[in-house]
Write a protein that binds this DNA or RNA. Structure first.
Lengths: 179, 179
DNA sequence: GTCTATACCCGGATAGAC
DNA sequence: GTCTATCCGGGTATAGAC
């Protein structure tokens, strides 16, 4: 099928991004990995931005799955989600940044994908959107600081996660009477 | 004095960064703003990275002052710090990112500057470093998501800040018996 | 759908005269 | 400490042949 090449190109782009970071993600590098020349990529994607959108979509779909798995049979949904969030981000730092450091290209993303990725967390807060966003903020902030090596050497990041998620969990209980 | 030119160059760099973002922060643009040619900058700074370090130092010193002011006479130190943090970051988004999206160049920063900027928050958590880092994570995460326009249109970001900081404040009270 | 050739623009940084 | 001239490398993207 004609779409096979597109998938192959996105896979190559992802490998480069994850291995060498966004500055290494050039059209020439992607093409070389696929085994073609850079100009040929433009027969499959109109421009580089379109290729990056495909990468973001792949990352969102993957995290949605991870989150859904994390809350299955979890006695502590917030803690389980936090652990899954952090583990995935640390395992895919450059893709994580591509997904989260810029506005989502919502109009070019598959319908419902963003909502699907957000649903597990919203469920964990009992539908409380403010607490869901606060929880996301906490997770994204700790993750970003860790990825950027912004904490001083020797800082106990695990303890910060534990303290933050515990406070959030208590906060959710206080706001949702039906806990 | 000979240092005057350095200060002038850093000021020009800051103006460009804040007005046009990091991609516009080129040696040529900085030089043009100062009224000289790009190569002349290398008589004052060894390379571009050194100039960026100076920008980070300026931002750190400024935020340290802001935070110290915020906790003065504040009945709710965490809330006051959160408001000051958010306001400064939204007012200086590109400098904020330069300061926080990469490792701190600690060995080239004035002695004690990082500690001074961190002190108000550590004080607000009663010396609880884990809670201080969780609070920083929350603030940095909400700020980053807001700066990156990652929340859906219409999302109530104020409510997320309120919910998160309230939960953190309660968490601090629970962990420090001497509240 | 792939290729070669190339346009076009941009960046950081250096050499050497004044 | 400033200048001009320039090196050197890199990027996205297009034209046109095959």
């Amino acid at each position: 099928m004609a779409e096979g090449r597109r998938v192959e190109i996105v896979a190559a782009a992802r490998e480069i991004l994850e291995a060498e970071g966004s500055s290494a993600l050039t059209m020439r590098a992607i093409a070389e990995r696929v085994g073609i020349r850079a100009p040929s990529l433009y027969k499959h994607f109109p421009d580089k931005a379109a290729l990056e959108v495909a990468l973001v979509a792949v990352g969102l779909a993957e995290t949605a799955e991870i989150f859904e798995e994390a809350i299955r049979n979890a006695g502590d949904p917030v803690g389980a989600l936090a652990r899954a969030y952090r583990a995935w981000a640390l395992g895919h730092p450059h893709l994580y940044r591509l997904m989260n450091d810029q506005p989502l290209p919502r109009e070019r993303l598959p319908e419902g994908l963003e909502a699907r990725a957000a649903q597990p967390l919203i469920g964990a807060t009992g539908g409380d959107l403010a607490m869901a966003r606060a929880t996301w903020g906490l997770a994204h902030g700790l993750t970003s600081l860790e990825l950027a090596s912004r904490f001083p050497a020797g800082a106990d990041v695990d303890a910060a996660w534990a303290a933050g998620t515990a406070a959030i969990a208590v906060g959710i209980g206080r706001r949702t009477p039906s806990s």
